[in-house]
């Protein structure tokens, strides 16, 4: 294997890693704050992409306004979903189990409704920038560079939100110690609702970015979701920083596996990595740290 291929692989690994990072963040926020594992994660991401596509082609809005409108939509969709269904379920005795099955059922319902509404054909969201950049033998699309940039900026904004704003701090307080947060007067239900809505928005955004890089069908969400699961477990459930590191590791590992073994071995490799993590370090890279 020559150096050219390896560097190209690393670059493509970084690009997919950045997309996985933002996708895993949506999952991590929900688990970190509410301790619910979102099994409807995939379809939420796909819906974000489909909303953008809808606004772009049917309403004739520009790319940026469509994305912003889709994000607003996703936020309120998440809020509604939480208030109407997850919140009552959290009060039942075995909520851990019922929320998982509920979100699974909800994911399948939404997936098939999306299939009815948009059809099974592949949809694309146009790239942000055309053309490509060539440094030596490495050729990268401007679009992919912009994706890495967008993800990094997004992670910084999210970090600022979580660390510096009142809502972000309240969210972290709930994640770290629910009773303590309640004592100092934080409304748990309200924080849960906004955390869920925000995570839905982040997930929707990841779907939009994935839709620009790859393609969208209503079913693709499952693949994204399972990848997101492995990433959050590698990073340590509920840890945002861990999830970001894990996403880049898995992005590069996937690119290397594709290079050396072929794309069909990618799934078994993901499973093997997953089992290895669970056997060696079930608490993940960040090891039990919260949001």
């Amino acid at each position: 294997m020559n150096i050219k291929e390896i560097i190209n692989t690393l670059v493509s690994g970084l690009i997919s890693g950045s997309l996985y990072a933002i996708m895993a963040l949506g999952l991590t926020i929900i688990y970190g704050v509410i301790h619910v594992f979102n099994f409807g994660h995939g379809i939420v991401a796909v819906l974000g992409g489909y909303f953008t596509w809808l606004f772009l082609t049917k309403l004739g809005l520009g790319l940026i306004p469509s994305i912003l409108l889709a994000l607003v939509f996703m936020f309120f969709f998440g809020l509604l979903l939480f208030k109407a269904t997850i919140n009552p379920l959290l009060k039942t005795p075995n909520w851990e189990f019922s929320t998982i099955i509920f979100l699974l059922g909800m994911g399948i319902l939404l997936e098939n409704l999306a299939l009815q509404a948009f059809g099974p054909r592949v949809k694309h969201i146009p790239a942000f920038f055309e053309g490509s950049l060539k440094i030596g033998f490495v050729r990268v699309n401007w679009h992919e560079i912009s994706l890495i940039g967008i993800v990094l900026v997004f992670i910084l904004i999210l970090n600022f939100f979580l660390k510096k704003t009142w809502f972000g701090q309240a969210m972290r307080a709930v994640a770290q110690d629910m009773d303590g947060a309640r004592i100092v007067g934080i409304s748990i239900t309200r924080i849960f609702g906004y955390a869920f809505a925000m995570a839905t928005m982040v997930t929707g955004f990841s779907g939009i970015l994935l839709g620009t890089k790859y393609y969208m069908t209503p079913h693709i969400g499952w693949d994204w979701m399972v990848k997101g699961f492995v990433i959050v477990v590698l990073g340590g459930l509920g840890s945002a920083t861990g999830a970001v590191y894990a996403a880049f590791i898995m992005g590069i590992a996937e690119a290397l596996a594709t290079l050396y073994l072929g794309s069909l071995w990618v799934w078994p490799i993901w499973f093997l990595i997953f089992v290895t993590i669970l056997l060696l370090r079930p608490q993940g890279l960040a090891g039990g740290r919260t949001l």
């Binding site: 851990e96 492995v230 477990v233 078994p268 993901w270």
Partner: peptide, 23 residues
């Protein structure tokens, strides 16, 4: 692997196990 794990981890492990079979 499930011996060391509980709850959600087993759900993820078994789901991904079944998911990697088609490939």
């Amino acid at each position: 692997p499930a011996l060391r794990l509980s709850g959600i981890y087993i759900a993820l492990l078994s789901l991904i196990f079944a998911d990697s079979l088609p490939t």
